[in-house]
Design a protein around this nucleic acid. Structure first.
Lengths: 260, 260
DNA sequence: GCAAAAGTGTTCTTCGTACACCCATGA
DNA sequence: TCATGGGTGTACGAAGAACACTTTTGC
């Protein structure tokens, strides 16, 4: 069993997958690295990944390795390049198929192959194993391009988020600063955001309990005041959520853009 | 020699490259296919490509195969995806790294591995071998995306081209129709096009030969007429060329777009 | 109560789009 | 001479960019 070998008439490269996992801590963009437990590059930081099995697709392999090494179960991986330089691995000829993933930052623990897994802010990434520095550069370039056209930013935030959080995310990814008012306007007029009444429970008991029972006269009496009051109560940082149905409608419009 | 085998502890997939070559005949977008001379899919049409050698990168392999099978020597290949479905090749586990290329349509002759190579308009492509139909769809999607941001269209045209030619190219790729005036305006205001005086030799001998010798009085005398005449002579379809230096300047501007 | 962050509207400029006529060429 | 295709300018509307003050919250 141990001595079984797989033989081919022509030499075959080994094929690995690598996964660049992005996360957002509210202020800067991070990536998830594992410290390599074995040679080569033992002790160096590298992307989660490993050899693709012969009976799985690259996507499946990348997800399996990600789960084994970090415990993360992500539904979406984006393939952004395959790296084939002849000497990129000292062991043998290895090509790697690279993906990026977007994670809501949660606790990530080390697994089988990884001594440990750890988040690093993008501007404090240590030198990486293999050609992973180069791969990282390509991954961030691709993310920058993609976020202009797809609502992937929301995969990096909690389901409910505030507008300033969203803005900081876009600014981290694109490395630019936006005017707050213009950002609000543009995001809202895409139509894909929904305001969330996170704080509706805090509103005065009268309006909460009797919402359906109010007579016309009470409405008229409290009209202006009621709106004012509700607004004040709700505002502790207005929360929004991404509305996927609306996105599916809007993206058909040729003029729909998420661009800035 | 014939019996030498390459053996590995774990099974390795074979790795191929495939190349989707786009060409433009002045009216519609074409792709270059070869008729397979061997099994599997003997007699089917497929992209030029083949097994990657162990001592070459995927790019090198793709260019080598392209040259061997079609005689084309192209400087730029764009990697747009790696296809890894487990059963995509009946022989063994094969993954393919796919590129697209842009060619100025010239005479392409069959080579070693290909019984013949032939151009097909995109809307008359026959059923293809392996998963090449799927790969073709991905290639055209990628080309559509890329042409918004990179001046790759010019690689499909002769060095000197007319504005209507350029417009037909964009319309073929994007599948839409543009207003001629708006297309002119937009293309010219990108600043990356240069008008070419292809027909300067045709201008009246007097102005051609004596350009530097004309006295003020003659200039004054012929002023309006001269401009008119020169213009008329030059206009047999104004030719433009792509100015790479200017592109390199302009693309730094954050507002630079080739989009429509 | 003070500092930091959230929320909100208007103006100006730029860009996209819609649209019609003249000229040149070649059948 | 007629039909086809190339070449050009303007006016309107939409979207982007610049910009300041008030309210709320947390220390």
């Amino acid at each position: 069993m141990d001595k079984q070998m797989y033989c081919y008439k022509y030499p075959h490269p080994a094929v690995t997958t690598d996964c660049v996992v992005f996360g957002f801590d509210g202020h800067s963009l991070n990536i998830l690295l594992i410290e390599r437990g074995g040679e080569p590059y033992k002790g160096c930081w590298a992307f989660p990944g490993g050899f693709m099995n012969i009976d799985e697709s690259a996507e499946q392999g990348a997800m399996r390795e990600l789960s084994e090494e970090t415990g993360l179960e992500l539904k979406y991986l984006k393939q952004f390049g395959t790296f084939t330089a002849v000497n990129r691995d000292p062991r043998e000829r290895v090509i790697t198929i690279a993906f990026y993933a977007l994670a809501r930052k949660s606790n990530v623990k080390g697994g089988d192959d990884a001594a440990k897994a750890q988040w690093f802010p993008l501007d404090e990434v240590p030198p990486l194993a293999f050609d992973h520095d180069y791969i990282l550069r390509k991954a961030t370039e691709q993310l920058k391009k993609d976020i202009h056209f797809e609502p992937i930013g929301f995969d990096l935030l909690d389901e409910h988020f505030t507008m300033p959080e969203l803005q900081r995310l876009y600014e981290s990814i694109l490395g630019v600063h936006f005017d707050r008012r213009n950002f609000y306007k543009k995001m809202l007029q895409t139509g894909i955001l929904e305001e969330v009444d996170d704080y509706v429970d805090d509103e005065p008991a009268f309006f909460g309990a009797h919402r359906e029972m109010r007579s016309m006269s009470i409405d008229a009496l409290f009209g202006g005041l009621q709106k004012e009051e509700a607004k004040q109560v709700r505002r502790k940082g207005t929360k929004f959520s991404f509305n996927k149905e609306r996105y599916n409608q809007f993206k058909e419009d040729k003029n729909f853009r998420l661009e800035f």
